[in-house]
Simulated scan of single mutants.
Amino acid sequence: MTDFINADDINDVILAAAATELEQMVSRICELIGTPLEQTTELERQVIAAFGFGAVYGITHRDQLGESQAHALSIRMLIKPFNYSEQQAVDFADDLIRVASDREAHPVMNTIIHRGIDGHRQFNQEDDEGLARNIQEILTAVQPEK
């Protein structure tokens, strides 16, 4: 008897690999900034999550995923590793999608998402210096003035 792999199984494998890739990228970013994710401020977590959403876009484009798959991947990333609740993750993912498609909705967040697309490329090319500079510039720019 021959086993057949159906499209849903292939999709599951692709999404699982993409989720792992996102977790590895977030972990690498935290190593590069010298702060474990659980020790970041809420602002830093949101910035890194938006940056990670740029990576979701890069993965979606690379792997030719559909909108529903990109949405699921975004929610998955926000739940693990960021530990947002399911409802927070859904709401945040919806905001990120809206902002990514409408620069005027939130120009700063839109820029962070687009920098995350570059960050995903830097991560895949193992350009730690470029990735570190990329995320650090953003984190510095969004810090409230003291």
Rank of each mutant, 00 (worst) to 15 (best):
Y57H: 12
E126L: 15
I79P: 05
G34L: 01
I48W: 01
T20N: 14
L96Q: 03
Q125D: 14
F4W: 14
A72R: 12
D95Q: 04
S101V: 02
Q87A: 13
R115Y: 12
A49V: 07
Q24P: 06
M25P: 10
I112C: 00
A16I: 09
D63M: 12
G130D: 12
I10Y: 06
I138N: 02
T41D: 05
I138R: 03
D128I: 00
A19W: 04
I29S: 04
A16H: 14
N134I: 03
I5Y: 10
N6K: 08
A49I: 08
A100V: 01
E44V: 01
V26A: 13
D12A: 05
T41F: 09
Y84F: 15
E23S: 12
L78S: 11
Y57N: 10
Q46W: 01
E129C: 07
H114R: 11
R115G: 05
V108Y: 11
I75N: 12
A19L: 10
Y84L: 15
F123D: 00
R28V: 07
D9M: 12
I33E: 07
G130I: 00
G119L: 05
V142F: 10
L65E: 07
L15Q: 10
Y57E: 11
A70N: 06
E23T: 10
P107K: 03
H61W: 08
S68C: 08
A72C: 02
D9F: 08
L37N: 04
T140R: 10
I135E: 02
Q88W: 01
I29G: 04
R98Y: 09
G52S: 15
N124W: 02
V13I: 14
L73P: 15
I138Y: 07
R103W: 03
Q136Y: 00
T35C: 12
L139C: 05
D94Q: 09
I113Q: 02
G54D: 09
M109N: 11
V56G: 07
R98E: 15
F82D: 00
A105T: 14
I112S: 02
P81C: 03
R115S: 10
S68E: 14
P36Y: 05
S85Y: 06
D94T: 05
N6E: 15
E67K: 08
D12C: 01
V26G: 03
G66A: 03
A19M: 06
P107S: 02
P144K: 04
G119Y: 04
H120V: 00
R76Q: 15
C30R: 09
V90Q: 10
F51A: 02
L22I: 02
V108S: 09
I33S: 06
L139M: 13
G130N: 08
T140H: 07
V26E: 01
V142P: 13
E86V: 01
